[in-house]
Amino acid sequence: MDENKLHHNLENLEAPEVYNPSHQHRLRVALLAAYDYNRSAQPWLGLQRFFAPLKVFSASGVTVALIVVITAFGFIAKNQPDVAHAEAQGIIGEALVGVAALPDAEREALGQVLGVNITTALAEAYDAPDLRYIGKQDVEVEYEPSATATTAPAAVAGVYFSQGIGMSPLTPKPFNHQLSEAEAARFRELSQGVRVLQFTNAEGHVVQMGIGKDRTPVVRVITVTEDSDSIMTAEPATPEQLDALKLKDERQEHSKQQHEQLRRFYAVPAQRDQQKLRPGTFEEIESDDDSSEE
C-alpha cells in the first residue's frame, strides 16, 4: 500500500456521527446561567485573579479532605420549603462563575480530587428540577488520635455535615491518611459555613453538594439508597487521591493580612511537587513551616 492510497482511504473513511442531546441540554442550561453571573460578577472576578497566584490548589486541598461518598439507607434531608429552587440555582450559578474564574490548573486539580468534571457536575445540579438549597452547614471533622500509629501521631477519622439536614453523625471509616492535629484544626476552620444544595441525579441518587465560601464546590456527597440491611458508612477520597496530594499552610508565604483572607489548606498533585510528597511527611512539612516562620 502506498501513502497516496492511504490518503485516499482516509478521505473516504466514515467517522461516526454522534449526538448527545442530554449533555448538550445540561451544558447549555449551565452555560447560560453562568453567562449572567459572569457579567454581574466582574469585580469579584478581578479580585479572584488577583489572589489566584496565592491560593493555587487551595480549593483542591479542602476538597480532598472533605470528599466523601456515602452509601446510606434512610438518609433523608429535612424539608425546608422556604428555600426556593431559584435560590439554589443562583448558588450554582455563582459556583459556575467561581469555578470558571479559577486558574486552569486549579480547576483541573479540583476536578481530579472530586472525581468529576466540576463544570459538568454543576451543570447537572443546575438542571435538576428538584435542586434546592438546604442551608449553611459546618462540615464536621472528627479527629482521633491514633493509638496504634507508629509513624505519625494521628489521623482524621472522618468528615460529615454536622446537623440540621437530617443526617445523623455517620460512622465514618478512617482516612487512610495522617494529619497532624494542627492541620486538622485548620481543616475544621475551613469547613464552616458550607452552603449545601441537594438534588436527584440522573441515576436517581440523592446528591448533596457543598459550596465553599470561595464559591467553589468543596464537597459532593452521593447518597445511594440500598436494601434495608445497608449500613451507613462514609468513605473519604481514595488513598490514591490522598496520596497524590499534600497539605500545606500558606502562612509563611504571605503577609498576615493576606493569610487571614486566604488561610486554608491547599494541595499539590504529586507530579508537581515530587520531592515533598511522600507518605507520612506532613510532620516534616509542618516543621518546615515552623522554621520558616521564625
Binding site: N20, H23, L27, L31, A34, Y35, N38, L96, A100, G111, N117, T119, T120, A123
Partner: peptide, 13 residues
C-alpha cells in the same frame, strides 16, 4: 463530555 464542557466554558469566559 468533560472536555467539551471545558471548551465551551472557556469560550464563554
Amino acid at each position: 463530555e468533560d472536555l467539551v464542557s471545558e471548551t465551551f466554558f472557556k469560550a464563554m469566559k
